[in-house]
Design a protein around this nucleic acid. Sequence first.
DNA 1: GCCTGAATAT
DNA 2: AATATTCAGG
Length: 441
Amino acid sequence: MIKTCLFTMWVTHLLQEEVLSASDETETVMKGINHGACDYLVKPVRLEQLRGIWTHVVRNSKTDPRNSIITGNDYADQNLQSLNGDKNEKDGANHNRKHSKKKKKDVDGANEDKENTTTQKRQRFQWPSELHHKFVEAVYQIGMDKSAPKKILEVMNVNGLSRENFASHLQSVQLMSSQRNLGIPRQDMEPLGHGVNLLKAPMLAYCVVRFWGQAKVFLLKTYQMIQSSSADLFNQVAREAHQFAGHCNSINSWKAAVSSRFPDLSHNVGMPKGPSQGNIININQLSRLAASSGHIPNFGNVYQNQIAGIIGKTTPMIGFSEQVVPFNFGSNTHYTTMLIGNSDLGSSSTRPALPDLQIDNSVMPNQMLNDGGTSGNLPEGGTINQQPVGDQVINNEFLVGTSEKQNGASGDLDEFLADWINEDYINNGDAFNSGDWDFAP
DNA sequence: GCCTGAATAT
DNA sequence: AATATTCAGG
């Protein structure tokens, strides 16, 4: 049975890769080799030559996955099987040619290679994407710092691959990521440069700003940044983000504003996280798309200009800027339902206490209190606590009733949030594509 | 003696 | 470019 297999294989080898020819000329030999032949036998073929090939085939077949039984998770075998079939033939030919040099030696001295079975090169293994995915997951699971070949091997629990396979793959992945300033590639992650990645799934935070008799709710898309390398830079960014979070805290009204539709998005808003989760911090989004490419989120034509106006004036922060969407639901009931724990907001028609906005030159308050560029720049580094600076903002039509129009119909917050939060995906990730992030020191 | 990762080879 | 192998050092 096994012999039959081997024989078949040998025949295959012979038919596919050996060239039999009566011609001895170098040119013909080269031609044959160049077309993928792994050896060149001159007729009449002598028995020893065939025997040489045969022994080679037998020896190879012990490691050749083409002879293996494929088990459920035996990726090595599966992989190499598929390797045979498809476009990797070229590589295969190469590979065989390499072997052919040895094989030629073998033919000459078939005895001597029987001893050398330990020196056998293992079959070239190509990582199928599925397995690579598993690999990446394992690395994340273990933690990027702690992931070592052996550990990955254990976690992945895959038959037929050696530690070297994992070491090698880990190495190439690491090399790749260092060259491209990427972490281990993740589809939901966007490189920001210098080893900092942006987790593309947005979260929401909101900021409530109270002015004379009114409260404004600013929605803020929040993204996670994940460090893959470049610790210094990351720390720097984290520090600044932390400072920014300090600003937010000083007005004490940034919250995770998560609609019932996104219950799992309510964590991680606004603050740096410890390294235990792989160095994740959160950043705030992002108007650079408007500034750099003119692209702004598709909120609907009615508001695009105004939004662009505001966004365009945004001052960059931490090398990127944020996109705060002023959001007024038009009636108190709307936003009070949203603002859990802030039931007093907007309840008074008389002038309430002014918001205690401690404002530096942070982009956020500029954006929030700016009416879109026609007037009213904030006092430099000012603490706003006396004047109704926000009047223009408050009375800006743009800020009023946007929820209904933005999503076209319902005025349902969930709908709006759904649209907004999914925008990056709807827009095919365009929001992150222009690549002008600049984290350079 | 094992494991790792850098260097090197293929 | 991707994978394998080697090797010095922990």
